[in-house]
Design a protein around this nucleic acid. Structure first.
Lengths: 309, 309
DNA sequence: GGCGGCGATACTTTGCGTGTATGGACGGCG
DNA sequence: CGCCGTCCATACACGCAAAGTATCGCCGCC
């Protein structure tokens, strides 16, 4: 059975007349008679009563037409849905991001994207850089925002562009000896218990801190590992030590903490947006477009690395 | 777009490989390539990503396949539903009947039919004979059980078979003078206020009573008109007069009434089952079949009047 | 009883889906 | 590094099935 049979049966039911139904279908009457006969043979049921007054569906015909209508609607809907999905109007976008990204570039991007593409279901997953990179490579994410570009097996197929940079800032509890200082030195940091989000899951940050603190790894090895910037600030507020994180932290001030610049000023790994260079979904394309328009300086980098879009 | 395109797309998604999908469809690989290409051109969206690892649906393809699956299910369901409807396993049967038919032949028939054809939706409408006949002729009922065969314009296209006969019985309140009598005469009836269900809507019963009570129409003209047997018995119980109805009334005894035979014994119009000779729906056929098997003597009459079934 | 409308049937035509053969791109392997 | 194998796309010829044309059979109607 083909869709044609359904269309013909519906037209016949609508016009109650072979000739007129055929005309409305743009074919001659005999082919319509034949197709309806074929359909009745295939279903094994008489679908129409041919009377002098007109052609009317039988009980079996009524039952058939109900589902035939639905079938054709589904077919039309399939094309429409495919088109919408292809234009990025619908779909799903799985975004992984480090918590600190929520402080600066993401609010603008997500707000704008949600407004422009209400049909795209955004799945947001806060996760450390290492896990985000792995999930992206494994195909569990469509796009990830991490600290530093993903490295390692599989990362070569990713496209990465920097979307934000920041420098290291210290955070301490209000009662901490450093609380009044505008800045702290590396020596001062070495003498205090440190709180960092720089474990295996944040390799770029860990590397950055290793460079800053030098060969003596004791300060880092003994540091408290926090999941994200909020945990760093929370622990600092408790007086657990000196927290080290991006200066973006100042965007989320909370009671009981003070910020100090780190001397010398130390650049943190770039906040990097990555996605699979291949298999770019329309929703991802739309998202990148929003990013491009939200952060103008990102556009050129995107064009250079992913070839158009 | 034809159903073929949907089947091909689903097979391709399932096998993730043009060659194997084509083999599973019983065609060669190039035609499958062409049909998929045609489908993508028609939908205006790329539906499959051809990679070395295999052929996978894009986001648009996923959206398309979801509805394609539904469309094909509807098509298969349309055929299945039509078959069921044609075999009388599903459908609708609108049955009109006089209240007294619920006392005798209908309980067995309806019980059996409900058990044998659980898929048929029975619509039961209690109504007087005249209205039942009119509704049948107007196509508002599929089958009617009336007192006497329908008459008048349009009735010639109906097939009617008797399904039960009965004779006139009187019913009075317990305190009525006739309450102790085994039978009442026509003269006694003429001297009492009568309660009958024999108005315009029950022409056959009215005619029957006119014959019984003779030329003197006073007794009938002054009779209380009741809707049905239950109303007759209720009014009789109140002492409103002598009720006249079928002896089937004895099947539904109630407090406060007594029955008396009418002398001479007077046959009431047959309980008649009627339906449109043309346009017999499968559900109706199944119902007639149940009637035939429930009331053996009806079978022959049915065969004789409706030519097989 | 002739006429007209309607659906079915017979036969021809045509278009499209299919098969065979082949091309082109990419990856694996010697 | 070049050969080969795999896989999908393209080219072209074939055949079937759907559409067209002509006609028949049936039934009401004037």
């Amino acid at each position: 059975m083909e869709a044609r049979h359904l269309r013909y049966a519906l037209a016949l039911a609508e016009h109650a007349h072979f000739g007129r139904a055929a005309r409305s279908l743009g074919i001659a009457q005999p082919p319509l008679s034949k197709q309806i006969a074929d359909l009745e043979r295939e279903t094994g049921a008489r679908l129409f009563d041919r009377t002098r007054q007109g052609v009317f569906p039988t009980a079996a015909g009524e039952a058939f037409l109900v589902r035939a209508r639905r079938a054709l609607e589904e077919m039309a809907g399939a094309t429409a849905d495919a088109g919408r999905a292809a234009r990025g109007e619908t779909g799903r976008l799985r975004l992984g991001f480090v918590a600190s990204a929520l402080l600066d570039p993401l609010p603008d991007v997500l707000g704008r994207f949600g407004r422009e593409r209400p049909g795209v279901r955004l799945e947001l997953h806060e996760m450390a850089s290492g896990r985000g990179a792995a999930a992206l490579i494994a195909g569990e994410l469509d796009v990830a925002v991490t600290l530093g570009a993903p490295r390692g097996a599989g990362a070569e197929h990713l496209v990465s562009v920097p979307v934000g940079r920041d420098h290291l800032t210290a955070v301490v509890g209000s009662a901490h000896p450093y609380a009044g200082q505008a800045s702290v030195s590396v020596d001062q940091l070495r003498r205090q218990p440190l709180i960092v989000a720089a474990g295996e899951d944040e390799p770029a940050v860990a590397a950055c801190l290793r460079v800053l603190l030098g060969e003596d790894t004791a300060a880092l090895d003994g540091a408290t590992m926090a999941r994200d910037v909020h945990t760093i600030m929370g622990l600092a507020a408790c007086g657990a030590g000196v927290g080290l994180g991006p200066s973006r932290m100042r965007e989320a001030p909370r009671a009981g903490i003070r910020f100090c610049e780190v001397t010398p000023r130390t650049a943190l790994p770039d906040l990097v947006l990555s996605f699979a260079g291949r298999d770019r979904s329309p929703a991802l394309g739309a998202f990148l477009d929003t990013v491009r328009r939200t952060c103008p300086h990102v556009g050129a980098a995107l064009d250079a690395r992913s070839g158009r879009a």
